[in-house]
Amino acid sequence: MIGLGFRREMLDWDMSAVQADFFEVAPENWVRRDLDPLHALIASGRPVHLHGVALNLGGAAALDQSFLRDLRQLITDLGAPLYSDHLAASGDSYQLYDLFAVPFTVLHAHRIADRIRAVQDALGMRIAIENTTWYTNIGAMPEADFLGLVLERADCHLLLDLNNLSVNHKNHGGLSPSEFVQRLGMERISYMHVAGHEFDDRFDLFLDTHSQPVEAHTQQLARTLAERHGTPVLLEWDNDIPGMDVINQELACLRTSTTM
């Protein structure tokens, strides 16, 4: 199963020509809005997953109960099989529309897991969390151990972002993406994200821009994991979105059988 992040730039595309088996949208862009484009995708036999950016799981502010009610209604309206958000902070006193790393400590793992449980109780379903890119962080725990502790305590799924693993490895060293997956295991993974990134000379860092084709080694790892475990893969492309032909080419590359 190969998916695509559906963006508003694609609203005028002939989506029947897009070679994706399922789609993903940000619920923040669709709450209390016309859902006809999404219902058209669903009617074509391709489900729509919800992947949020505003839940602020890593923050300290109280969870937004009004948003959770709207989210539960959207999940119902779309029959969405999965909702996910990021293992990050996105603003406490106001929405920052960016994602910030949380310290890799046992205390924060327990705190965030409790917030995830509260969200799952409010929605009446198990959710998934996504591992994020981070450019600076504190805390003595390795990221894989921190993530594993959150997953176990919260009893939730993982949306495994392979591009984020690659960016973090390039910027900070540590486990390679394949080593990270081996250490964490695949038991809780609902599906995987792939995307492209860029190097920024201003910061001397690789940035998670979602504006480039997926790197060959990330494609290869995604294909291998999909073949071994039957785990779906979804392509994200959020900035400088190319035409449908390029998107279909990227989707086709994820379907190609290969071995590592």
Score class of each variant (00 low, 15 high):
residue 131 N to C: 03
residue 97 Y to M: 14
residue 66 S to P: 09
residue 31 V to F: 03
residue 257 S to V: 15
residue 16 S to P: 07
residue 190 S to H: 07
residue 7 R to S: 04
residue 175 L to C: 10
residue 55 L to T: 09
residue 104 F to E: 06
residue 67 F to R: 13
residue 128 A to S: 11
residue 68 L to M: 09
residue 44 S to M: 10
residue 107 L to R: 15
residue 233 V to H: 01
residue 109 A to Y: 05
residue 112 I to M: 03
residue 225 L to A: 03
residue 130 E to R: 01
residue 179 E to N: 11
residue 259 T to G: 15
residue 61 A to Y: 10
residue 13 W to T: 08
residue 192 M to T: 05
residue 140 A to L: 13
residue 80 A to S: 15
residue 107 L to G: 15
residue 132 T to M: 14
residue 58 G to R: 08
residue 35 L to A: 00
residue 159 L to A: 00
residue 117 R to H: 11
residue 156 C to F: 02
residue 65 Q to S: 14
residue 195 A to Y: 00
residue 120 Q to L: 06
residue 128 A to E: 03
residue 217 H to S: 12
residue 9 E to G: 13
residue 67 F to L: 15
residue 46 R to K: 13
residue 24 E to T: 03
residue 47 P to K: 09
residue 199 F to Q: 08
residue 239 N to K: 13
residue 42 I to T: 11
residue 7 R to G: 05
residue 75 I to C: 08
residue 46 R to I: 02
residue 156 C to G: 07
residue 8 R to K: 15
residue 145 D to Q: 13
residue 158 L to N: 08
residue 237 W to G: 04
residue 160 L to F: 03
residue 249 Q to K: 12
residue 53 V to E: 08
residue 10 M to L: 11
residue 55 L to I: 13
residue 65 Q to M: 11
residue 237 W to F: 04
residue 3 G to R: 01
residue 50 L to V: 05
residue 207 L to V: 13
residue 72 R to V: 06
residue 214 V to S: 00
residue 251 L to H: 03
residue 65 Q to L: 13
residue 240 D to W: 10
residue 204 D to C: 14
residue 245 D to R: 12
residue 86 H to G: 03
residue 82 L to V: 08
residue 236 E to V: 02
residue 13 W to R: 00
residue 91 G to S: 07
residue 177 P to V: 06
residue 240 D to Q: 14
residue 12 D to M: 12
residue 61 A to I: 11
residue 200 D to Y: 09
residue 172 H to D: 09
residue 127 I to D: 00
residue 159 L to N: 00
residue 192 M to P: 01
residue 89 A to K: 09
residue 30 W to V: 02
residue 193 H to P: 06
residue 161 D to L: 05
residue 63 L to W: 04
residue 211 S to I: 02
residue 206 F to G: 07
residue 168 N to H: 07
residue 217 H to K: 12
residue 244 M to K: 12
residue 228 R to E: 12
residue 138 I to F: 12
residue 185 G to K: 02
residue 9 E to M: 12
residue 248 N to Y: 02
residue 112 I to T: 10
residue 113 A to R: 05
residue 221 L to Q: 05
residue 195 A to Q: 01
residue 39 H to Y: 06
residue 190 S to P: 03
residue 201 D to S: 14
residue 198 E to C: 11
residue 22 F to R: 02
residue 3 G to F: 04
residue 152 E to P: 10
residue 93 S to R: 15
residue 237 W to C: 02
residue 109 A to H: 05
residue 34 D to Y: 04
residue 135 Y to D: 03
residue 176 S to R: 05
residue 48 V to M: 05
residue 115 R to E: 04
residue 44 S to E: 11
residue 123 L to Q: 07
residue 174 G to E: 09
residue 115 R to A: 08
residue 194 V to H: 01
residue 79 G to T: 04
residue 3 G to N: 00
residue 177 P to F: 04
residue 60 A to L: 14
residue 222 A to E: 01
residue 37 P to A: 02
residue 77 D to W: 05
residue 200 D to P: 06
residue 168 N to P: 09
residue 13 W to P: 00
residue 160 L to Y: 06
residue 2 I to Q: 08
residue 110 H to L: 14
residue 225 L to M: 01
residue 6 F to M: 00
residue 68 L to F: 06
residue 235 L to H: 03
residue 73 Q to H: 12
residue 87 L to I: 09
residue 62 A to G: 14
residue 179 E to V: 10
residue 110 H to N: 14
residue 150 V to L: 05
residue 75 I to H: 04
residue 12 D to R: 13
residue 235 L to D: 00
residue 111 R to F: 08
residue 82 L to K: 02
residue 126 R to T: 11
residue 122 A to T: 10
residue 120 Q to M: 07
